[in-house]
Amino acid sequence: PREAYIVTIEKGKPGQTVTWYQLRADHPKPDSLISEHPTAQEAMDAKKRYED
């Protein structure tokens, strides 16, 4: 089974940042970016789909 994890990042100019959620996995390479999402819920949904 595949495993993934969610990383929170800040995008934008200082003082005007927006939080994004990255879905990452250690396949095919360590810390590979799988997808980016504007909400934590979307990231969790993507994580479930990826791991299923």
Rank of each mutant, 00 (worst) to 15 (best):
P38D: 06
I34C: 03
V18I: 12
I9L: 07
Y50H: 06
P30K: 12
R24H: 06
E10Y: 08
R49K: 12
R2P: 11
E36A: 03
K29D: 10
S32E: 06
H37P: 00
K47G: 02
D31G: 15
A43D: 00
E3T: 15
I9V: 14
Y5S: 04
Q41F: 07
S32W: 11
H37F: 08
A46W: 03
W20G: 02
Q41L: 11
E10R: 08
T17A: 09
R24G: 01
E10W: 06
I34Q: 03
K47F: 05
A46N: 03
A25Q: 05
M44Q: 12
Y50A: 03
A4I: 10
E51L: 11
Y21G: 00
P1E: 11
H37G: 00
M44V: 10
P38T: 12
Y21F: 09
E10V: 13
D52W: 10
P14F: 10
I6R: 00
R2W: 13
E51P: 03
P38Y: 07
I34Y: 02
W20Y: 11
Q22M: 02
D26V: 10
P30Q: 09
G15N: 07
W20A: 04
Q16F: 14
D52E: 15
Y21M: 00
P1K: 15
E10H: 11
T19D: 05
K48L: 11
L23M: 03
R24A: 03
T19E: 07
Y21S: 00
K13W: 12
A43Y: 00
S32L: 08
Q41C: 10
P30N: 07
D31Y: 15
H27P: 03
Q22I: 04
E3L: 15
G15I: 03
K29L: 14
D52S: 15
P38H: 09
P14A: 12
R49D: 08
A40G: 05
P30L: 09
K13C: 12
A25L: 06
E51R: 06
P38K: 13
P28Y: 07
T19V: 12
P14S: 08
T8L: 12
K29Y: 15
H27M: 09
D52R: 14
T8P: 14
E51T: 08
E36Q: 06
Y5G: 01
T17E: 12
H27S: 11
T19G: 04
E36D: 03
K47R: 07
T8K: 15
S32F: 12
P1H: 14
H27C: 12
H37W: 14
V7I: 11
T17Q: 11
Y50D: 01
A4R: 02
K29A: 13
E42W: 02
L23R: 00
E10C: 14
G12Y: 05
V18A: 08
K13E: 15
E51N: 09
Q16L: 10
P30T: 08
E42M: 07
D26E: 06
A46C: 03
P14T: 11
R2T: 10
K11D: 03
D31C: 15
L33I: 13
E51A: 08
H37Q: 01
L23F: 02
Q22P: 01
I9K: 05
G15D: 07
A40E: 15
E42G: 08
Q16A: 13
A43F: 00
I34N: 01
G15S: 06
K13Q: 14
K11E: 05
A40R: 15
D26R: 14
Y21Q: 01
Q22W: 02
M44A: 12
K13H: 13
D31T: 05
A40T: 06
D45E: 13
D26N: 15
E42F: 03
K11C: 12
K47N: 01
Y5H: 07
R2G: 11
L23G: 00
P30G: 09
T8N: 06
I6Y: 01
T39D: 05
V7L: 06
W20P: 00
V18P: 02
T19W: 07
Y50E: 02
E3M: 15
K11L: 08
H37M: 01
P14G: 09
Y21R: 00
K47D: 00
G15V: 03
K11M: 07
W20N: 03
Y5F: 10
V18E: 15
P1F: 14
D45L: 13
D31P: 07
R49S: 09
S32Q: 09
T17C: 09
R49P: 01
L23Q: 01
H37D: 00
H27N: 09
S32I: 11
P28I: 08
E10N: 09
V7W: 04
Q41N: 08
Q22S: 03
P14D: 13
K13F: 12
T8R: 12
Y21T: 00
K11H: 07
P28F: 07
Y21E: 01
Y5A: 02
G12N: 04
A25V: 14
A43V: 05
I9D: 02
T17H: 07
S35V: 01
R2A: 09
Q22D: 01
I34K: 04
G15T: 05
L23D: 01
K47I: 04
A43N: 00
G15E: 06
Y50M: 05
E10T: 12
P1Q: 12
I6G: 00
A43W: 00
A4Y: 14
P30A: 09
P30D: 06
K13R: 13
Y50P: 00
G15F: 06
E51W: 06
R24M: 14
R24Q: 03
T19P: 08
A4E: 01
E3I: 15
P1R: 15
G15M: 05
Y21H: 04
K11W: 06
G15Y: 06
V7S: 06
D45I: 13
E51I: 09
I6E: 00
